[in-house]
């Protein structure tokens, strides 16, 4: 009898612990300046976010679809041309072949695309225990929960619960799928020294880099909403005009 009670108790605890471990954490919902029909990006946050990407993320993550010239375009971080040229020149790209038929390295210019940390995907996998760090160009649009999810994930690292087995090269994150992720915690207090003097808490860095990544995925967001407002206003006015025109035309029927 005692054995049965013990078995049932442990069985119950086992089953309920499954329930605890499988608890789904909804992503956090910070207020984003770009949300809503009149949302726009925060210029300063975008610039800080670029700094976080360059100094922390770009070690493993490429951003192939972005070019250094995007950094000066309207609706983005809007660095000056000189700043962007200088930032591009910090990286080297392969060019050529030259007159001798050889490829050579040269500093990047505005028209070049962001330099990838890897020569190919396979190299990326090998350096990261078989997991490929995804390209971040459209990551915010490629994940359920978008900016909220990315932001939460970046600060969602915690000590795993005592009963969970975590392999090497895998980390516990409460917002990750199955609460496990192959990416180690990227953001630590003062991990980046912001050029504008903002205090670099993990939350601040996560906020800024998520803002930057959202812009990277949707560089036309501001123009889109601006034009959208004009288009819908126009259509509403036109619908009123057509409504009255229609009424007039039908007035003498019936």
């Amino acid at each position: 009898m005692k054995k049965i009670i013990i078995k049932i108790t442990f069985g119950f605890l086992f089953l309920t612990s499954y329930g605890f471990a499988a608890e789904i954490h909804e992503p956090l919902h910070p207020d984003w300046s770009f949300e809503g029909p009149f949302g726009i990006y925060e210029r300063a946050s975008l610039q800080r976010g670029y700094q976080v990407y360059t100094e922390v993320c770009s070690g493993c993550h490429s951003m192939d679809l972005l070019s250094y010239r995007n950094l000066i375009e309207e609706g983005g971080p809007e660095f000056s041309k000189e700043q962007a040229k200088a930032m591009a020149a910090m990286f080297e790209v392969e060019d050529g072949p030259n007159e001798d038929g050889e490829m050579y390295m040269r500093p990047a210019i505005l028209s070049d695309y962001f330099v990838s940390p890897w020569e190919n995907k396979q190299q990326a996998r090998v350096a990261n225990g078989g997991a490929y760090p995804p390209d971040l160009s459209v990551i915010v649009k490629a994940r359920e929960g978008g900016a909220d999810y990315i932001y939460s994930l970046l600060i969602g690292y915690e000590d795993p619960p005592s009963d969970m087995e975590i392999d090497d090269g895998v980390y516990y994150n409460i917002y990750a799928k199955g609460e496990k992720i192959a990416m180690p915690q990227p953001l630590y207090e003062d991990g980046v020294e912001y050029t504008d003097g903002t205090v670099a808490t993990p939350e601040q860095m996560a906020h800024d880099v998520t803002m930057f990544l959202t812009w990277a995925a949707e560089p036309k967001l501001e123009a889109r909403k601006r034009i959208g407002f004009k288009v819908i206003s126009y259509l509403i006015i036109l619908s009123f005009l057509l409504y009255f025109t229609n009424r007039r035309i039908w007035k003498d029927t019936h």
């Binding site: 126009y234 259509l235 006015i237 036109l238 005009l241 057509l242 009255f244 025109t245 007039r248």
Partner: peptide
Amino acid sequence: RRNFLYITTGSFAAAG
């Protein structure tokens, strides 16, 4: 008035 309405609507639609 009717013509004004029609012309306004027509021009507005054409501009768009």
